[in-house]
Design a protein around this nucleic acid. Structure first.
Lengths: 237, 237
DNA sequence: GATGTCGGCGAACACTTGTTAGCTCAAGCT
DNA sequence: AGCTTGAGCTAACAAGTGTTCGCCGACATC
């Protein structure tokens, strides 16, 4: 019956290597599958609040997601693959945050305060994402580490481009802009990580800690801005 | 025979809760025990190059160290305890490095170049330590995380104190000094982590990557120094 | 309405895991 | 010389692991 179209079947199975090429399925079926997939991803992210990706287990995730262990393999080849998806999702939300910061307008002080407020809010609303990224940035899974590093590099490039459009960047070389952008991105990540650790305390103390972190980050950004203002640019035109 | 000194025996066993109070044992016996202990610690550190602390196993460590699984418990209550010891050892080596940097003398440029050289060398010679620290700084084990954070805080304080003795810090408040020191320490850690990722490449490319990282870090430190020079201090005397 | 597709399930496989009990025997003490 | 100590071993335990198989039954397609 199928003897005459084996190549077609092979192509299909090759397609399903992506394991979630849902485009050719329509309606209820696809929605149900997506729901299970989301349940797995959400359960994974939740478990990763107190664990490491390399210590996560298939059974653990499926248990938390309300699936049977075997069900996992209908969606992901292994846990690393789920990890990579979580990385892309977390980075996407971080990317939006960075764009929001870069899009703001105003003088230096306003920009700094705005950026810190955006970071604080993002950490509050996407705690799990930020936790996951800081935890796995130097974690044990190579593919995940590389994915995060690559994306942070593009964030740096994007930031450098945005800095380049500002009037105070006149005369700056592309290389120096990247250098400065790297400093900003690194500081952003560190600040986000600091905000993350704050609320391991009673709410009142947590608020105070958050304010302290914000004040510290603000001064540090001010100092960097100062250095930027006095950076010796290439021979003026 | 011992019925009249039970408290003494209890005190001894309470003492051995520290599990490595070797002081009351002398000679060969203690040396042998210490050798096994070191084997366990070294094996653990080696395994942690490609793994996370939360994913490490007792059997795995003892296998790598050449002991039986049960032997592990003669030295550590559980893996977290081994982790804490590794943390203190790694931080100790890092502490020496920081002291070395702070002890150097010269003008700003020399200090920056010297610091980067010291970092690069330290990463080359204590790769496992640095890898472990960056990996577990935001890792899944709370106690380890807190130990690292606490020690980094003292490094910051120490750096602030050292900065305070420099003439260019005249008029700086203690708070601002800590702020600046925090920036330096954070940058130091980030630079060390960057050096760490470099040699995942053929030696020639690795050398080039290392030089690129060093140049980048140097410029960033220069910019921070510039900001420091122009930081508005409290009303001059 | 028949037929094929495929997400989810239970069961089973062959491991690995942490931890304990009880033993041996070299080292140290009296 | 005897006696105690304790590091390290083997063996065993129960519990957990990743992964595959074959099946069911709701969905989709013709």
């Amino acid at each position: 019956m199928f003897a005459d179209i084996p190549t077609l079947r092979w192509r299909k199975s090759a397609n399903s290597c992506l394991l979630n090429d849902v485009s050719h399925i329509v309606g209820v079926r696809a929605a149900q599958k997506e729901q299970s997939r989301r349940a797995l991803l959400d359960a994974g992210l939740r478990l990763l609040e107190h664990q490491n990706l390399s210590g996560l287990g298939v059974r653990e995730v499926t248990r938390a997601a309300g699936l049977s262990p075997a069900g996992f393999y209908r969606h992901f080849r292994d846990l690393d693959e789920l990890g990579v998806v979580l990385v892309t999702e977390s980075l996407q939300s971080l990317h939006l945050m960075i764009r929001k910061i870069l899009a703001e307008q105003g003088d230096a002080e306003e920009l700094i305060d705005g950026a810190i407020a955006v970071i604080a809010r993002h950490v509050r609303e996407h705690r799990a994402h930020i936790r996951f990224l800081t935890r796995e940035r130097h974690g044990g899974v190579r593919r995940v580490r590389e994915a995060i590093a690559a994306e942070l590099a593009t964030f740096t490039a994007e930031t450098a481009a945005a800095l380049g459009t500002q009037p105070q960047s006149a005369g700056w070389s592309a290389e120096d802009l990247r250098m400065l952008a790297g400093l900003y991105v690194e500081h952003l990540v560190a600040t986000a990580a600091a905000f993350l650790e704050a609320p391991d305390a009673p709410p009142a103390a947590a608020r105070a800690a958050e304010r302290r972190i914000a004040a510290l980050a603000r001064d540090q950004l001010r100092l960097i801005s100062l250095g930027r203002r006095h950076w010796p640019t290439a021979p003026r035109t």
